[in-house]
């Protein structure tokens, strides 16, 4: 087996193992959490007998190991159980919301990633001069301000005062793509501002690191201009660290949009999770946790795979 295939197989196997371990942590974590579903469904005035009956019905009394495996095998077949509070099938309820979240994250990434890399390249080109400092200052400021504050400020000026975009990002299946995009314009803008700085600064740092190399001097001594040097010779060698930070931020876009979804009343995973945490609906929390973990691990796995593939020594062995 060629070394690259072996490395990739190892990486993927490791990711699956990690996901399995995370599932144990999620399950264990939700068990030790305080609170009682039966209590929260039936309310404070419920009799002890009613609570005991409901617990038995919900299967909360079975041994935890047995419950874990039942849950795990269900999840592997796409059955995430039913929500305790509403009796709804979780997989059904989630699929729609997951798509909404992915839709929002996708468009935020479409704006943020190219913009961050372009700004990073620009900052390298004008290193230590005013464009570099301006880019750094603005992106750092935007990452430092809490995202809900940016959300409300944008909502006030762009949606209320200027009326360029709706303040509430409601979407449904009957809307056209353009309508949907118009509707999510503000959350996309906020998310972009939040993730821009990381990716921009990593791009800048990775390329500047590569710019110290002797082959950059060779390129300069060939009479290439600054952008040719950066784009042709520095960027291909800086891909691995850049992809890494891009993937981390994409994971954040999917997993960390909880606050933004709540601010803009967007029908995504985040809002769904927050609702059910407050209701102590354990199966829903477990399902959301598992999906978030899968997204995180999956994106990081892709980053590692890209890093392996971008190494010419592995791609073209001797």
């Amino acid at each position: 087996m060629s070394p690259i295939v072996k490395l990739l197989a190892q990486r993927i196997a490791l990711s699956l193992l990690l996901l399995l371990l995370i599932s144990v942590v999620i399950f264990a974590g939700t068990i030790v959490l305080p609170g009682d579903v039966a209590q929260s469904i039936l309310g404070q005035s419920a009799t002890p007998e009613a609570l005991a009956n409901l617990r038995a019905e919900l299967g909360v009394n079975d041994p935890p190991v047995q419950r874990y495996f039942a849950w795990l095998f269900g999840a592997m077949q796409g059955d995430l159980g039913t929500a305790l509070t509403s009796g709804q099938d979780i997989a059904d309820a989630l699929s729609n919301r997951l798509w909404n979240t992915l839709f929002l994250a996708f468009w935020a990434a479409m704006v943020a990633v190219p913009l961050a890399i372009f700004l990073g390249l620009l900052a390298v080109r004008f290193k230590d001069r005013w464009p570099d400092k301006l880019i750094s200052a603005v992106t750092l400021a935007s990452i430092s301000i809490p995202e809900f504050l940016i959300g409300y400020v944008l909502m006030y000026f762009v949606a209320v005062k200027l009326q360029w975009a709706p303040s509430v990002a409601m979407i449904n299946d009957s809307m056209s793509l353009l309508d949907k995009l118009n509707s999510i314009a503000l959350p996309v803008a906020v998310l972009t501002l939040v993730v821009l700085a990381h990716m921009m600064r990593m791009t800048r740092a990775a390329i500047l690191n590569v710019m110290q190399s002797a082959y950059i001097e060779t390129a300069e001594l060939k009479g290439l201009n600054a952008f040719q040097v950066i784009y042709r010779h520095a960027f291909p060698n800086a891909v691995a660290p850049i992809v890494n930070v891009v993937m981390l931020n994409l994971a954040y876009l999917v997993v960390g949009v909880v606050v933004i979804e709540v601010v803009f009343v967007y029908p995504g995973m985040g809002q769904y999770l927050v609702d059910h945490v407050s209701k102590r609906d354990v199966p829903v929390v477990q399902a959301c946790g598992l999906i978030f973990a899968a997204v995180y691990i999956g994106l990081n796995m892709i980053a590692d795979i890209v890093a392996i593939l971008s190494n010419p020594r592995l791609r073209h062995p001797k």
């Binding site: 002797a214 060779t218 060939k222 009479g223 010779h233 010419p312």
Partner: peptide, 19 residues
Amino acid sequence: RGAEVTYVSQSAAASFNPA
């Protein structure tokens, strides 16, 4: 540069772009 005057460095291994 690269047309009238060109350069050969000490370490070709470092001076060639690995990618």
